[in-house]
Write a protein that binds this DNA or RNA. Sequence first.
DNA 1: ATTTAAAAGTGATAAATATCATATTTTGCA
DNA 2: TGCAAAATATGATATTTATCACTTTTAAAT
Lengths: 229, 229
Amino acid sequence: MDSNCEKCVIRDLNSLNSVMADDLKDISKSKSTVHVKRGEVIFSEGASLKGIYCLRNGKCKLTKLAPNGKEQIVRFIKKGELVGHRSVISNSVAHLTVTALEEMDVCFIPKQEVLELFRSNSDFSMEITKSLAEDLDEANASIANMAQKNVRERLAESLLFFERIFGTDNEGYISVTLTREEIANAIGTATESTIRLLSEFKKEGFITLAGKKIRLEDKVKLQHLTEGY
Amino acid sequence: MDSNCEKCVIRDLNSLNSVMADDLKDISKSKSTVHVKRGEVIFSEGASLKGIYCLRNGKCKLTKLAPNGKEQIVRFIKKGELVGHRSVISNSVAHLTVTALEEMDVCFIPKQEVLELFRSNSDFSMEITKSLAEDLDEANASIANMAQKNVRERLAESLLFFERIFGTDNEGYISVTLTREEIANAIGTATESTIRLLSEFKKEGFITLAGKKIRLEDKVKLQHLTEGY
DNA sequence: ATTTAAAAGTGATAAATATCATATTTTGCA
DNA sequence: TGCAAAATATGATATTTATCACTTTTAAAT
């Protein structure tokens, strides 16, 4: 694997696309790359981060521990996205736990590099800010969904969302492997309810199930479901 | 009312606290102030904003229209806070509707001023970014609350939240006037459920109700409620 | 390859919440 | 000041969702 930032194709996908050659060299020098396996935690809620992480490949879930002990999946991230920049920029502890959903490689860029870049490069700071603004928009949409939609509607919504952001494999199955419990933790319901609703969707012909793999068969219908039809 | 930014006490409360005398003069020259009444909309979802707004006093609700036609209150803002900076920075349309909850004065600062400031003043851009980061944290916490807590727990949580951010009047009542429907729209439940639960809380001695005014009588108990005790 | 733990699935039941219908009270305003 | 509209309140009922108890299947580890 090429560990040279200048040639990294992933860079184009995130705020680092605004960083020019000279600065990139500095980053490249100070960064390190780690390999993580499914289930491994990159950092935990409450941790004091020493830098930010850039996903070279793979997918992660960002979770928050509720007082009842359940974990809420707040967001998913994939190849090319950054994590930890919120904590580093606001100089606070991590408020989310980041866990790998599959085997992957992550680049670590030390805090000082990021902050220095933020101060010296207004394109970079603008990009970071825009990306936080987008996250905020999505989070607000998510609040409205959680509050206004029932479990069935939220499941339909999530399935469409998973396919949209993760894409499909060559057989048409959504390209992410989630347990029923993880799906439940994302939509905010009991695992049993998720299992039951998935079976219903299957019976009604909206989806095909093959173990943990899910294929959407009737996206129009699923879209209608999300809106309560 | 003093319309001079240099002397504005509100400025200390938001990202503009990082703006120095010279820049402030420019802002002061280009800004305008408007008076709005309860129920008036400052801007709507989908609008293209020509600038950002700073609340000199009063309170607003930020809402999002759900596909079922119901409005979801996503956030409250009060004296000193900015709105519209998300849209202006990310150069997109407003994704929320801002409505006054009481009579108030709002300062309008044109887009160009804000963007110019963002580029030229890295303290200001850092402050704006931090404030977005904070909003994002709160939004994530809110997602977890909506998803993991039941309506009773969310109501207890919201009452404590309202008192915390809006304070109390001289009789101890929470200093914000919300209809039962608005409370319902904030916690994501039916208006009738909110009414019933408020009555229960009253009967159980946790709160006192006097029309729309609410006084918290047992905050420890309410706090326990939010955690499911 | 076998064992063992985790995940998926299912039924019965309880609890939470929405919905509908309607009465009463409050509020804004002509 | 009185009237109409909006907001609050309450009961009855339907629907949704969680919980518990258990079986079956799948996946992981030795």
